[in-house]
Amino acid sequence: MSLDLATTRRIAKLARIGLEEHELEATRQKLNGILGWIDQLAEVDVTGVPPMVGTETETLRQREDKVTDGNSRDALLACAPETSGPFYTVPKVVE
């Protein structure tokens, strides 16, 4: 499958990576090169083969329902580039 510029723009938008118009074309070419190589997978017959998720050597463990964490607001907020009082902040979002 070959990647067009519109699709490149769409996935950059989906991934929230702001690319300049001139970067889009370079990116498209690069990704296209990789996709061309990846297309060799088409020749593998996977009829009846289940997908592998993780490495499947264990089953999912569960934890007890106990409160063991939290109350570390200051330590967490100290890592943030911008805060206001007890909150993280972002440009105003209109819903």
Binding site: D69, G70, N71, S72, R73, L76, L77, P86, F87, Y88
Partner: peptide, 9 residues
């Protein structure tokens, strides 16, 4: 209180 019931996860 805001952001007090928050773990690293």
């Amino acid at each position: 209180d805001p952001n007090t019931q928050v773990s690293l996860v």
